[in-house]
């Protein structure tokens, strides 16, 4: 027996995934900076470069995952960022397009949100 993948044709999980990636990225960045500043830079003077590079790496991974999800929503779900007609029919194909459309919008939103989360490391060069 072949089990369906979690995020594939008609699965609703594609709508949840971008938010989960954003939340995981947010928490990781928070933890990395908090632990580094509490342990390595207790007096606030140590440089923040290791945190900057780690956050940059985590951010690239998060953006890559969101990009992959967006491609999936566009390809497998047939979603598009802008729709020109009302999706209202009670058919499997219509539901799939709707999921793809919403997933693409969420991917765009969370791309921006992930960049917002990462912005502070570009500005600050020490813990305080």
């Amino acid at each position: 027996m072949r089990y369906p993948r979690l995020i594939d044709d008609r699965s609703i999980w594609i709508m949840v995934a971008p938010s989960v990636i954003w939340a995981a990225h947010f928490l990781l960045c928070y933890w990395i900076a908090a632990i580094w500043c509490a342990k390595e830079a207790a007096d606030g003077s140590a440089p923040l470069q290791p945190v900057t590079w780690t956050v940059a790496g985590v951010t690239l991974v998060a953006l890559g995952l969101i990009w992959a999800l967006a491609r999936h929503a566009w390809g497998r779900y047939g979603g598009s960022l802008f729709i020109t007609r009302t999706i209202a029919d009670d058919r499997a194909q219509e539901r799939k397009h709707f999921l793809g459309h919403v997933a693409l919008l969420l991917c765009a939103l969370h791309t921006l949100a992930v960049i917002f989360t990462a912005l502070p490391v570009l500005v600050f060069d020490r813990c305080w």
Partner: peptide, 8 residues
């Protein structure tokens, strides 16, 4: 984005 950058 502008507000966040200015605030930071």
């Amino acid at each position: 984005t502008g507000l966040l950058a200015t605030g930071l």
